[in-house]
Design a protein around this nucleic acid. Sequence first.
DNA 1: TTGCTCCTCACGTCACGTGAGGTGGC
DNA 2: TTGCTCCTCACGTCACGTGAGGTGGC
Lengths: 263, 263
Amino acid sequence: MHEPLVPIGMFARLCRLSVKQLRHYDELGLLKPARVDPRTGYRYYRRDQAREALSIGLLRSLDVPLVSIGKVLAGNDVADALGEVRDRLEAELSRRRRTLATLDRMLIEGLPTVDVHVAEEPARQVVVVRDAGAPERVSEVTSACLGRLLDALAAAHATPCGPLIALFPLDLEQSLAVTAAAEVDAPVPGTEPTMLAGGRFAAATHVGPYDHIPFTAHALLAWCADRGLVPTGQVREVYLNDPHAAAPEELVTRLMIRLDEES
Amino acid sequence: MHEPLVPIGMFARLCRLSVKQLRHYDELGLLKPARVDPRTGYRYYRRDQAREALSIGLLRSLDVPLVSIGKVLAGNDVADALGEVRDRLEAELSRRRRTLATLDRMLIEGLPTVDVHVAEEPARQVVVVRDAGAPERVSEVTSACLGRLLDALAAAHATPCGPLIALFPLDLEQSLAVTAAAEVDAPVPGTEPTMLAGGRFAAATHVGPYDHIPFTAHALLAWCADRGLVPTGQVREVYLNDPHAAAPEELVTRLMIRLDEES
DNA sequence: TTGCTCCTCACGTCACGTGAGGTGGC
DNA sequence: TTGCTCCTCACGTCACGTGAGGTGGC
């Protein structure tokens, strides 16, 4: 004696999914009907398949992608299958939080504009510490880099002759390379000595929290573009005061970008 | 004398967009090249168009949809165009927060299961207060509804002969209708008298914060589905203790759903 | 002439929703 | 026979990325 089979419409009602969803899950092999009539193509489900169907619905309501749901249903370790999803979600969440803050700022101030001037910069001998990370973790990676640099300087009893600097690539790629630099004239263990190129730079001053730097950077790039100046190399941030001593609203950062010769 | 025009590749570099993006924005009419060679189809841009292009990039990095960007660039009120985006983003954000919490719970406890039993319920005479809202605001709308109901009861010096009840539709739609009910035998101003149907119910007890109720509800529905029982009407939540008096972990809620006769 | 850039399709992404047009089941 | 359900395409969503296959510019 078989369990009674129900057609797709009734099954959909049982498990609060759409008929279209069920057909989709069938196609993907996620939830196969117990029987498919070979002549008509009609799908029939056992009622107890509704438990699985409801689980799919529950996980979908949590935005778990169907591939991950497939892993959970296939009996893979739930922690494995969902942990990854969870971490992605958390990263997304913090990105969204920052996005919201920026958007709020933009609603008040409009699209960013800023004073820019062009200056000659000398080449500088520095020691650097490098790291890389996903673009949404820039601030995290940057402060970690600067921290490691400060630690190395302290351990070597070295005092930089100027403010700390960070370098970022112009293009925002999947993995963003971050460099923290300090101007010193002797090598420092745990860091790498290098030269920062000199030349003609466009520079703007950002006053406010570090989270809002992309704002000013955008304005700086727009300024260059308007004038047909082609930025090259990396964006430099020069930290003119100490984030531990000053309030976020009073942080002063100089943004600099090297200009190509006439293009 | 015209400004010099640059081809799409160089322009893309100037404003950190992909060539494909620029072509896409052209198709949408969001950012038209200053000139298109009618013979070759080559697109040429003025350098000062980079400001606009950079603004598109900045807004896109904030997940602003292209249609909204179009409004901003067309000179519509920025607050109008972005305010809506902002609000959507905020709603999304709080939904994600809850999703993350639920996922964390699921990582510890696995897919939900629960004890269910079937009981006969009498019909009950109640007064109700109704409201509706987006599904992500269920908890908000529900507590507002219950609050209004309690206020009305207090104003009428009426004491319900039983715990408060809330009703939710089985299907999660765009706008979720929420009903708060209290069992009383006399009419109460500001509320609507009605009857709650009696009959055979499947019931489960949820212990824990209200945010986790969907969890238990899922298990209840799965239980019904396994047995070929077809739930009808609305899901009832009966609040067995006072959320102001008990800790979230100790809140006891009875979930009930009416069963169809043999189907 | 060699590279490099640019062009236009066309398809893939993700999880379906929404018809169109036709047939099966009771 | 009438409705209702079910079927399979096929297209749309959103903002592009990724080739394929071919041409223009210096």
